[in-house]
Design a protein around this nucleic acid. Structure first.
Lengths: 153, 153
DNA sequence: TTTGCTGCAAATACTTTGCAGCGTT
DNA sequence: AACGCTGCAAAGTATTTGCAGCAAA
């Protein structure tokens, strides 16, 4: 049955597809593109299965990051955040605008054609120049959101 | 006297230019482009002034980040890293290649013309679309360095 | 002199780990 | 049955904070 791409990937690596791991993934899946902290994941999972422990959530997200199922982000507020990697050929790719004042995070997925062209040039250039195989990237913009700008300063 | 751009910026905000703060800045300045951890900064500062405390270093870097004198980076290993913002119209702008296996970090400053053109389009587009004033960005590439690739996957 | 800064130590916050029992394969 | 996974509690790091004394303005 349940043979989503991530389930398959887990089994392929001799990792067990437990209830807890599926629960963590389902929480992240339903919060698509919302970069949750471990605590937020834990709270939602706990609603559905009160016996689940925090440590299990930590272990699960670390495992998923290692296997390319989750992205890990650190926006500068001390807590790591996690988000599902879009499945093969799903759209879903996006980047972040972070407000330095209120820490609000906006997703955007505009300008992807421009970005793709830019990344193509830079990545292939870097791979050649530094003999470094690139398989992921992060692009963050920091600044000040509309609300915070209105509130003066 | 000592009226570097950051000194000026501190005074302008009614902040004191103390020995300790100058020491922290001089450590970062001499380690130009080396993204130091707080502990590394502390150790070097401690060599010059053994009485300095860790907490002072933490308070200093946080202050400097808030005032745009330092960049804060989190590459995913749990420790924050700091690096001087290049002074007005200095070159010095660069980005990072991070090896997921050995955590080595490479700086690069190639492809800046391509990047400038890309950022111009995206930033102005984002500012217009989301009413978000952008004043900083981070671009990281993650992958696998030459040494780690040779050691077999 | 005023007010902010420093060092110390204690307190927080986030994340990892040891271990005995349980659940997948 | 084997072995990996889980929950709990304890441990480990990184970072922040309270406070009395010190120093820049």
């Amino acid at each position: 049955m349940s043979d989503s791409w991530y389930t398959v990937r887990l089994r392929k690596n001799n990792l067990r597809v437990t209830n807890e791991r599926q629960l963590v993934l389902s929480v992240l899946d339903r919060n698509h593109q919302r970069h949750l902290t471990v605590e937020e994941i834990y709270l939602q999972a706990h609603d559905e299965k009160p016996s689940i422990g925090m440590a299990t959530v930590y272990r699960a997200v670390n495992l998923f990051v290692q296997h390319g199922i989750l992205h890990k982000f650190e926006f500068g507020d001390g807590k790591a955040r996690y988000e599902m990697v879009p499945g093969p050929e799903e759209p879903g790719h996006h980047h972040h605008l972070i407000c330095k004042k209120c820490q609000k995070i906006l997703n955007y997925d505009d300008f992807m054609e421009v970005e793709r062209k830019f990344l193509e040039i830079v990545e292939s250039g870097l791979e050649r120049r530094y003999h470094f195989r690139i398989d992921d990237h992060i692009i963050h913009f920091y600044g000040c959101c509309e609300t915070c700008a209105d509130e003066g300063s």
